[in-house]
Simulated scan of single mutants.
Amino acid sequence: MADQSTKIEFYRHNLGEEEQRSVQECLRGLFLTTGGQVAAFEEGFSEYTGLPCTVALNSCTAALHLALLALDIGPGDEVITTPMTFIATATSILHTGARPVLVDVEPDTGLLDPEAVLAAITPATKAIMPVHLYGSMCDMRRLRAIADAHGLKIIEDCAHCVEGERDGVRPGALSEAACFSFYATKNLTSGEGGALSCQDPALAARVRLLRQHGMSKEAADRYHGAYRHWDMLECGWKYNMDNIHASILLPQLPRIDERWQRRAELHARYAAALQDVPGVEVTAIPEGSRSAFHLFTVLVDAARRDQVLNALSSGGIGVAVNYRAIHLLRYLERELGHGRGDFPRAETFGDRTISLPFWIGMGQKEVDTVAARLRELCAPMA
């Protein structure tokens, strides 16, 4: 039996001295809110993604919401998306007054099924919001073809996928906007934070306006040089990133690919350790893809999933569920009028999924311990 006294956290960040020095430098400066460090991060992140425009925000939720607003999506409109996601994907649509239209997923990847998207298009459909899950990208070439044929916008939920690529396409290359998360457990993290990246300077300019109440001047512009009055151009939100969070992100930018390589190695170790475990499936990565390797997620028998979760966590192994199909959550069930049976592939996926500990400081011993315990728990019943 695996040593159940061993504590293996679900996630540990890898922030260190460089991030501490960067924050200290920020704190020694005059300006703590949106200013020079934010601008430097936006420039560096654009350089990495290959997208010319980046607007730093306080969450991926803010990025999704502002992308919709900046594309004039609102009451009476429909946005097609997936039930296999975090709730913010759907609530960002609801916050605009538009309606999320959920469709089913691919059974082996959990990714949005393009053919289900095509079947759900109505005269009210204005956009598609694909979610790149666990680090794997949706089929953006197919989704772009569908969107172009029907005059639709695409807003990508890239919360799991800074480093991903599929069929030669990177996040944001085939969409109107790509929305990223820098939440505490993300590959690139500042505890909280997000960004919208795009190719259209006009779209970025509107998002930049909306992130600070619709004011004509941001704080850095208002307090440098001779005082000039500002105006309110439209009703916006308080969604800006501050210099402190940007200073945590800045030292990580040069190390994105180095850390990705470490997660790729860790993913391969896990996959090898679990390849012959009965009742455990490693979530599939689509062919032609470079995963961002954000999470290591497996599928187990739905009837035993919660028992396995509880046994792992009570034995000191951190776990999570990414995700239960969101149309079965109480509020969204009421709001959207769905129930069990409406999206059977997403429901099956959500009932089976377990995310295992996955952070770049893990070693072979931790991987072997988790794999051995999972093997014990998923062994066929006598």
Rank of each mutant, 00 (worst) to 15 (best):
E218F: 14
A159E: 11
R375H: 08
R334L: 14
A127K: 09
Q199C: 10
K238P: 02
E163K: 08
N58K: 01
A220Q: 04
L57Q: 01
C26L: 10
V321R: 08
D221G: 13
V321I: 13
L250V: 09
R142I: 05
Q261E: 15
L111H: 04
V79L: 06
Y227R: 12
D368N: 06
V308I: 13
G35R: 07
F349D: 03
C26F: 03
G337A: 09
A67E: 08
E333H: 00
T85K: 03
R262E: 14
G191Y: 12
L27I: 00
L329E: 06
S136A: 11
D351S: 09
V105M: 04
G50S: 04
I317M: 04
V207E: 06
A292Y: 11
L64W: 09
Q24K: 11
P52C: 11
E287P: 01
E218T: 12
E78C: 08
R255H: 15
E18D: 15
R334M: 08
D257I: 00
T96Y: 13
T189A: 10
E176V: 00
S289N: 09
V101T: 11
T81G: 12
P286F: 09
A204Q: 00
L57S: 05
D108Y: 14
H229P: 06
Y239M: 11
L336I: 04
G279S: 10
A90Q: 12
V321M: 11
G16Y: 15
A302I: 01
K153W: 08
E163H: 10
S197C: 15
I326H: 11
R334E: 00
R340E: 15
I80T: 08
G316D: 01
V79H: 07
N243A: 06
Q4I: 14
Q275G: 11
T33S: 06
G339S: 14
D342Q: 08
K217T: 05
G50V: 06
E335V: 14
G35L: 07
G279R: 05
G288M: 06
M137C: 02
G337I: 02
G172V: 07
S313I: 10
A272L: 05
A320T: 02
R211N: 06
A70W: 02
I248K: 13
R324L: 07
P357I: 03
